[in-house]
């Protein structure tokens, strides 16, 4: 085995494992016939994507992007002394001299030798995690609703029920008309859903 390939494998195996994890989640979503299982798969898929991002942010020998208080303090003081103000907006992609200068000025401060891992992927993933849980919550609410209406959360079974209802829409039209007139004929107080009877 030649060494570049080996080196590449050593440098990338983390990603590969993450990819395997992602694909396992993806497989669960695709192969599932159970609605909850689909949500679980989606969860695993998304969690693995979070891992992909976080892996990108890591720097060898780095540390979490939390600045030790004493460093921060020293830096704040140094900044105060150089008296430079905040840099507002500047043109896209260019970095003003001022910042570079300020950056150089900090170089000799304590803590300047600490290597921090990249904080941006973390920031993004915090957002993504919240989005993920929101999706999960919504999906689960839908599952509960489907379960109430169909009495099952197996997709095959649901499709069977739909087929048993006749042609698509056939039976639904009746409901529609009922709903249209807002007739409460059938909805006596005992309209609980199947969940009760199952439990």
């Amino acid at each position: 085995m030649n060494s570049p390939a080996l080196e590449q494998a050593a440098g990338l195996y983390n990603y590969w494992i993450v990819i395997v994890l992602m694909m396992t989640g993806f497989y669960i979503v695709l192969a599932r016939r159970n609605l909850i299982k689909a949500v679980i798969g989606l969860n695993i898929f998304q969690t693995s994507v979070f891992l992909l991002y976080v892996t990108m942010g890591k720097v060898r020998g780095g540390t979490a992007p939390i600045i030790p208080p004493e460093v921060a303090e020293a830096q704040a003081k140094a900044m105060h002394e150089t008296g430079h103000s905040e840099h507002g907006t500047h043109a896209l992609g260019t970095v003003s001299e001022e910042i570079v200068g300020a950056h150089a000025a900090h170089a000799d401060l304590p803590g300047a030798d600490i290597i921090y891992s990249n904080p941006l992927p973390s920031v993004l993933m915090l957002t993504a995690i919240v989005v993920g849980i929101a999706t999960t919550a919504l999906a689960l609410a839908l599952v509960v609703r489907i379960r109430e209406d169909y009495g099952t959360i197996e997709e095959d079974r649901i499709l069977e029920i739909d087929r048993a209802d006749g042609l698509p829409d056939d039976d639904d039209e009746d409901q529609w008309i009922d709903a249209d007139t807002h007739s409460l004929a059938g909805s006596s107080p005992d309209t609980p859903t199947d969940s009760e009877s199952v439990n």
């Binding site: 109430e148 209406d149 009495g151 039976d171 009746d174 409901q175 529609w176 009922d178 709903a179 007739s183 409460l184 004929a185 059938g186 909805s187 005992d190 309209t191 859903t193 199947d194």
Partner: peptide, 8 residues
Amino acid sequence: PAIANRAK
């Protein structure tokens, strides 16, 4: 109501 009916 129709869905409830159906469930029943």
